[in-house]
Design a protein around this nucleic acid. Structure first.
Lengths: 354, 354
DNA sequence: CAATAGCGAAAAATCGATTTATCGGTTAAT
DNA sequence: ATTAACCGATAAATCGATTTTTCGCTATTG
């Protein structure tokens, strides 16, 4: 009967209080570590908590504070390794500090992004980690600003005048890619990008272009940008390669989907990496090291981004002032077999063993 | 000043009430669609809501009900396409019904799984979608049972005596793979599995074995199972292929990681699919269709699983009784280029164009 | 010896909603 | 004409904690 009771209704702080023969206020104080409680009473409370299996109801507990121990996370999607890892890291970090992470996917829609943000505002979240669909100038960031929310912007973002930002150092990574490709002798490279995410993609593009031109002023850099959606990219790339112009010796894709599409186009044409063409992509994935050839990629420092984002976010939550900061975390560039020197093997099939 | 006020403290239901000249109870009734309110007053409430930009605080609103409008989702990981899509679908479905989804990753740990569940119980979630690390007999499901939580088990699960289950029809899919491989002439197949997830993997294995033996009684089926962790799989597979025994003509991996490891082992040995060996994997991924060769895979019906899981979950939340159901959703098998007839080409390098 | 601190704990207010009980004021039924 | 039923709305209780206020009691001080 007591068993059944326990299953039906969870014990509240008052149940603990009456079992320990004290008031609810005292129980609350013991549990929150206030020291002005007589040791004897504290022990009785602890015993009662143990006996009843009492646990604080976070919802009720949060009720009375302005900032609730909830962190919101908004990602453009959940399907990729990058954002999957990101959410996983953020969740762990939030949990470490006794916060609950509520994650939502904006599904690459700015409208949805804002709606989700409004819902999180309804929850009175203490802070938000926002990975914007486009960039820091979207309606979501504006909403956060207008409502005095505290938050941090990550990934597709460079710097902001209202929020701290944390992202990968795209420009430096791209420069490294440029050094590698030029060093191997490439003098005609196609860069594939996504216009939508203006600032970040521009940083990647410019980082590449500047270093490449510096090292090899005669280099030819073609650019294929799809504006808003990745849908047309397949056709754009097809057209590009179908034109009579000279085929580039390497392709540098500025985002994962572009790497996929490029690979798919190579397949269609029967081109092999790296003999027929070299390929490097921004964003690494697990499969890239098991395919043949392994695909060279820029590895984004997910853990570092997550850690720093949470750190700066919690500092703001705790009331730290000062101008917004803009962190750039260094990437790692993994030059795998999909990259080689141009013309070393006269356009044929079949890759070589390691 | 009114501006500033609005930014600092969000309007509560009492603010709306006083603006509309009614009581808080009336506001609550209007907002929840109770019809016993004088139309004139209802309109004034609506106007006040509009004017103040009032939105219900979900936390306060949930306070007074036993089941809160929160759904918990526990996945073994967030990094794979499968679970990423799953969370995304679940989130959308929960949102549609006015619920908030709180997702957490158990990181493939049963201990963590139970802890997360306890935390969700603290939140008094209305229901839980649990994708167990191992199977339906773990400590997490036991915890849910012991605490009278309502929930649904998905993915690595076949059937349960306490909870509804929804998962992919592994056995049927494996049978189809068997038909395809046998039909192409394969008589020696290696199956790679993960022992930890007993029931599901057994279903996949038995589904394959039964059909294969039925169609070709002389078929040889080798099995490499790694018990608890995927770590040793690489070594296990290496050993298997290093033994002097005859090389199988096809490999069927029962889980994604196994497919990756198999591919990696092929790479190391310089074997090409499908000429040197064929490969089919359970679980599809976006990259599998752009690699060369494209990798054949069993596509799990993520959306269907998510939809049915949520449907049955909400029925239970609304109090529907009856014995637990066990749904199996059919998979699609995509036979791509990594599969071919054995011996059609005498073990050489280089794949052929489509 | 009266007044004042100081301590530990209980009582009460609070957070923001929902739900139940209560209450005037009509209208219908006896 | 008195009571009953009803309608719309308000006051009050409730959910489960935290925080502020109050209070009783002992110990210190002028």
């Amino acid at each position: 009967m007591a068993q059944k009771e326990a299953q039906q209704r969870r014990p509240s702080i008052h149940d603990v209080a009456s079992h320990a023969g004290v008031s609810a206020a005292t129980v609350s104080k013991v549990l929150s570590g206030v020291t002005t409680v007589k040791p004897e009473n504290a022990q009785r409370v602890l015993d009662a908590v143990e006996l009843l299996g009492y646990r604080v109801d976070p919802l009720a507990s949060d009720m009375r504070r302005a900032k609730r121990r909830i962190i919101g996370a908004i990602m453009p999607e959940f399907e990729s390794e990058f954002f999957g890892q990101m959410v996983s890291e953020l969740e762990g970090l939030a949990e470490q500090r006794g916060y609950t992470l509520v994650a939502a996917s904006s599904r690459e829609s700015e409208a949805r992004e804002k709606e989700i943000l409004a819902r999180m505002h309804d929850w009175r979240v203490a802070g938000v980690v926002l990975a914007p669909v486009r960039n820091e100038h979207g309606p979501a960031a504006a909403f956060m600003k207008a409502n005095g929310m505290t938050g941090v912007l990550i990934d597709r973002v460079l710097a902001d005048d209202a929020f701290d930002t944390v992202s990968a150092d795209s420009a430096a990574a791209s420069a490294e890619v440029a050094r590698a490709l030029v060093g191997m002798g490439h003098r005609h490279v196609l860069v594939v990008g996504l216009g939508e995410q203006a600032a970040t993609v521009r940083a990647r593009l410019e980082g590449f272009r500047r270093t490449a031109l510096e090292l090899a002023p005669d280099i030819r850099i073609d650019v294929v940008l799809c504006e808003s959606d990745v849908g047309p990219l397949r056709a754009l790339l097809h057209d590009y390669f179908s034109k009579g112009t000279e085929r580039p010796t390497a392709v540098y894709s500025l985002f994962l989907k572009g790497t996929l599409v490029a690979l798919s186009e190579f397949r269609r044409r029967g081109w092999h990496c790296p003999n027929d063409i070299s390929l490097v992509g921004f964003d690494d994935a697990e499969w890239m090291q098991v395919t043949w050839p392994a695909i060279a990629a820029v590895v984004q420092p997910v853990r570092e981004i997550a850690t720093n984002a949470m750190e700066v976010l919690f500092r703001r939550i705790e009331g730290e002032g000062g101008p917004p900061t803009a962190r750039l975390e260094p990437c790692k560039v993994l030059m795998r077999e999909s990259v080689g020197s141009p013309g070393s093997v006269p356009h044929s099939g079949g890759g070589d063993r390691q």
